[in-house]
Computed example of a mutant assay.
Amino acid sequence: MQTVVARAHGDPLAEALELTRRLKLPHMRKALTDLIPTAKAQRWDPAELVRVLLAEEVAGRDRANLITRRKSAGFPAGKTFGDWDEELSPIPRPTQEALKSLEWVRRRENLAIYGPSGTGKSHFCEALGHAAVEAGMIVSWFGIEDLGALVRKHRADDSIARALTRVVRSDLIIVDDIGLLPVSPDAAEGFYRLVDAAYERRAMAVSSNLAPAGFDEIMPKTIATATVDRFMHHAHRVETKGESYRLAQAASGKGVTPFR
Results as ranks from 00 to 15, higher is better:
L247A: 08
V5N: 01
L172R: 06
G143M: 15
K121A: 05
A156D: 12
T3H: 11
I160C: 09
D83V: 10
T95E: 13
V151K: 11
P185H: 00
R260I: 02
T3A: 15
A112P: 09
L194H: 05
E243G: 01
T165N: 12
F81A: 10
E200D: 05
L19V: 15
V151P: 11
T225E: 14
M219P: 01
V151Q: 10
H154M: 08
L150M: 14
G179I: 03
A248L: 10
T68E: 03
E56A: 05
L99K: 03
L23D: 13
K71I: 10
K221F: 00
L164F: 09
R22F: 12
L102S: 11
I113D: 04
A197L: 03
T80W: 04
H233V: 02
A39E: 06
E134N: 14
A112F: 06
N65Y: 02
P258D: 05
A224T: 11
K241G: 07
A213L: 08
F191P: 02
R22M: 15
P116I: 15
H123L: 07
L35T: 00
I218K: 03
T95R: 11
E97L: 15
A127G: 08
R201C: 01
E56G: 00
E15Q: 15
S101A: 15
W141R: 06
L49Q: 08
A226L: 09
D186F: 00
F81G: 08
A163E: 14
F231P: 09
A98F: 02
Q2A: 14
G60K: 05
K30S: 12
I67P: 00
E56S: 06
A127Y: 09
E87K: 08
I178P: 07
P92C: 08
I223K: 08
V256W: 02
S72G: 01
S101M: 08
I138N: 12
R93T: 09
P182S: 02
D158W: 00
E145F: 13
A132G: 12
I91P: 05
S122D: 10
S170Q: 01
R51Y: 09
Y192G: 07
I223S: 02
H233G: 01
T227E: 11
L88R: 13
F75W: 07
M1P: 05
P94N: 08
E87L: 10
D176V: 14
A64K: 11
T38Q: 14
K71G: 08
A205F: 03
K30N: 06
I138D: 09
L99H: 04
T20C: 15
I218V: 15
R237T: 10
S140W: 07
V238L: 04
A163V: 12
Y199T: 06
D186N: 08
L54P: 03
Y245T: 05
I223H: 01
W141S: 00
L32F: 01
K79W: 12
M137V: 08
I91Y: 05
A149F: 13
A41L: 12
A127T: 10
S207V: 10
K121T: 04
R237C: 00
I113G: 04
A197Q: 10
S72K: 14
N110K: 12
V50H: 03
V256M: 07
R51S: 13
R7S: 14
L54Q: 03
Y199I: 08
E86L: 09
D34R: 13
L194Q: 04
F231R: 07
P258Q: 01
G82D: 11
L32S: 04
R51E: 14
H9Y: 06
E189V: 03
